[in-house]
Each structure stands twice: as structure tokens, then as C-alpha cells.
């Protein structure tokens, strides 16, 4: 199949259009919130949350016998939140360190989820079919209803991110200073984490609990390579997320046997690899070239002398100590 016919299909084929739309929405939301998760060093928490959502999904089905997207997402959200609370409680009240606490929470919840899942599959209830897709994700099974739920929740999360942008930036950069200004940092932390949980749970059906965190981490990591501005990084991360979600979902729905989760992750990883190597300033290739250039410069003695005498235009000490404060 060539590219042009694929693009035509994107607009004519109902399933493909739904899948593409869903994956793109998902990528935008997880990419944008992922950039904050990355900067706040919460990437692993994202992984724990997505694994921990599995028992929530299965329990929500067992209790309601419904597979309505809102029901399952609500279950996932509650479980994801409980896992986060448990994680925080463990760190606060025991001597267990963060990494161990995360591993413990992740494996416990995921184990419970798997146990419930196999139990449910034995039930003589045919409605349970499809729950197992939450493991590795199946974008091809996305329905319009699912995409609507994703867009609604994701859109809400993005709006809140925009509204509290300044406060979230303060929280991520300098929490204590923000608290000294009077902003309720704990509440903002809860809100931002809730948004992260939202971004994760809306992607579970398409990408799966096992690999959803990659869609949180990878686009943000790739975006960080290209810019030094938080706003640009967040937008770029959303774009990368959409790109990997879209391409992953398309490939997996066109190639039989390819699960969506792994395919999306591979697409995102390709973006990360590309960015790590090629991004200006931070990219490895760029860095290597720069080092080579400066080595060559230093080897030429006359030019190095020139560099020392003209370079380093630091703020003049005299000017600073001369009581620059007088203007107050």
C-alpha cells in the first residue's frame, strides 16, 4: 500500500479514521502532560500509575458488567490514584526509598490486575471479551464513543494545564518559593498529578497498561532536546506524541499481528533516538562536532590566545559591586 492511498483511506475508511483520531488525541494529551512529568522526575510514577490501572479496569467491569469507556476509565483512574497515594504513604512513613516503593506498588497492583483478568476470563459472561486488550492495547478496536471520551477528558486536562500554567511552572521549578508566595503547592501537586493520571488512563485501551508510560516519557524526552523553553517543549512534546500515536496506531492496524502498544512505543523511541543524535545544542552529533572544533581551535596557538583575551564577557565585577542597588 502506498502513502497516497493510505491518506485517502484516512479520510474515507471509518475504522482507520477513528483510530487515527484517537491515537492523535492521546498523543497530544500524554505528550503535553508528559513534559511536566519528565521535568518533575515523575516518569517512573507514570509507569506505576499505568500498570496500577489494570485492576481498576477489571474491577470496574466486574462491578458494573459494563464496558462503557467512561466506566472503565473511571475504574482505571481510581486505581491509578490509589497507587499514587500508596506510593506517597510508603515514602513518607517507612524507610523504603522511592525506586523500591514504585517497584513495589507497580508489581502489586499489576499482579492483582492480572489475577483479576484471568479470573474474569473464566466467567461464563461473554461481555468480558476484549478486556485483555488493556494489556498491550488495541487501537483498531477503538470506537467513536471511545474517542469522544478520550477527547473530552483529555481536552479538559489540557484546558486545566493552560489555566494553571504559571502555577504549575512554579511548582515544577521551585516549590518552596511558590509556597512562600502563598500558593497551595500541595493542592497544585495533587491537581497536576491528577491530570497526569488522566492522560495515562485515557490511553490504556489503545496502547495498553504495559507500555503506556512510554507515551508519557518518550515525546517529552525527545522534545527537551530541541528547546530550552517550557512552552515550546510542551507543544513540541504534544506534537511528537501525536506523531508517534498516529503512526503506531496506523501501522498496527495495517499490519496484522502488530499490537498497538509496542508499535507506538517503537515509533516514539525512533523520535527519541533521532532527537538525541541530531538536535542542535543538546544532540550527540552536534556535541561531538563542537568538541572537535574546539580541540582544533586550541591546537592552533595564536587563535587560542585571541579567544582568551576577547572571550568570556562576564558581568564586570566593578559595575556589580559599585552598589547597583542605588536605583531602588
Amino acid at each position: 500500500m502506498n502513502v497516497s492511498s493510505l491518506i485517502t483511506m484516512l479520510f474515507t475508511d471509518y475504522t482507520l479514521r477513528t483510530v487515527a483520531l484517537g491515537a492523535a488525541v492521546l498523543g497530544i494529551v500524554s505528550g503535553a502532560l508528559g513534559s511536566f512529568a519528565l521535568l518533575r522526575r515523575q516518569s517512573l510514577l507514570g509507569d506505576a500509575i499505568s500498570h496500577a490501572a489494570l485492576p481498576g479496569v477489571v474491577l470496574a467491569f466486574l462491578l458494573t458488567r459494563s464496558k462503557a469507556p467512561l466506566v472503565l476509565v473511571a475504574g482505571a483512574m481510581i486505581a491509578g490514584w490509589l497507587a499514587t497515594l500508596l506510593f506517597m504513604a510508603i515514602i513518607r512513613s517507612t524507610r523504603i526509598k522511592e525506586d523500591s516503593a514504585l517497584a513495589f506498588v507497580l508489581s502489586t497492583f499489576f499482579g492483582l490486575g492480572l489475577a483479576l483478568l484471568t479470573f474474569t476470563q473464566r466467567l461464563p459472561d461473554s461481555r468480558q471479551a476484549g478486556l485483555e486488550h488493556f494489556l498491550f492495547g488495541q487501537a483498531a478496536a477503538l470506537m467513536v464513543e471511545d474517542v469522544l471520551t478520550m477527547s473530552l477528558l483529555g481536552g479538559l486536562a489540557l484546558i486545566l494545564l493552560g489555566v494553571f500554567w504559571k502555577e504549575f511552572k512554579l511548582l515544577s521549578f521551585d516549590r518552596d518559593f511558590g509556597a512562600s508566595l502563598g500558593f497551595p503547592m500541595a493542592a497544585l501537586d495533587v491537581l497536576l498529578t491528577t491530570l497526569l493520571v488522566t492522560a495515562i488512563v485515557i490511553g490504556l485501551q489503545a496502547v495498553g497498561v504495559v507500555l503506556m508510560s512510554a507515551l508519557i516519557i518518550a515525546p517529552a524526552a525527545a522534545a527537551r532536546q530541541w528547546t530550552d523553553r517550557l512552552g515550546v517543549m510542551t507543544a513540541l512534546s504534544a506534537l511528537f506524541g501525536a506523531l508517534s500515536g498516529l503512526s503506531g496506531a496506523l501501522i498496527s492496524s495495517l499490519v496484522p499481528g502488530f499490537s498497538t502498544g509496542p508499535t507506538v512505543v517503537l515509533c516514539a523511541s525512533a523520535l527519541v533516538l533521532f532527537s538525541l543524535l541530531l538536535a542542535p545544542n543538546r544532540g550527540l552529533i552536534w556535541n561531538g562536532l563542537r568538541q572537535r572544533r574546539s580541540r582544533l581551535k586550541l591546537q592552533a596557538p595564536e587563535s587560542s590566545v585571541l579567544k582568551i583575551s576577547t572571550g568570556l564577557p562576564g558581568p564586570a565585577g566593578g559595575e556589580a559591586q559599585g552598589g547597583g542597588y542605588e536605583h531602588l
Binding site: 521535568l39 500554567w165 502555577e167 521549578f173 502563598g182
Partner: peptide, 29 residues
Amino acid sequence: GSVDWDFPTTVEDVVMMGLYGRLGWIRRP
């Protein structure tokens, strides 16, 4: 040392954080 100086932001942006308290909720600098 209490903050991450690799945070993607500029000098001016950090200084403006000093005005966030006066700005109050939601309003942007």
C-alpha cells in the same frame, strides 16, 4: 542548590516568578 538549573526556562522568566504572588491566580505576567 534547591532547584534544577537545567529546567527549560530563561533568566527573565525566573525573575518574573518573584511577581507571581502579586499577580495572583491564573493571571500571566
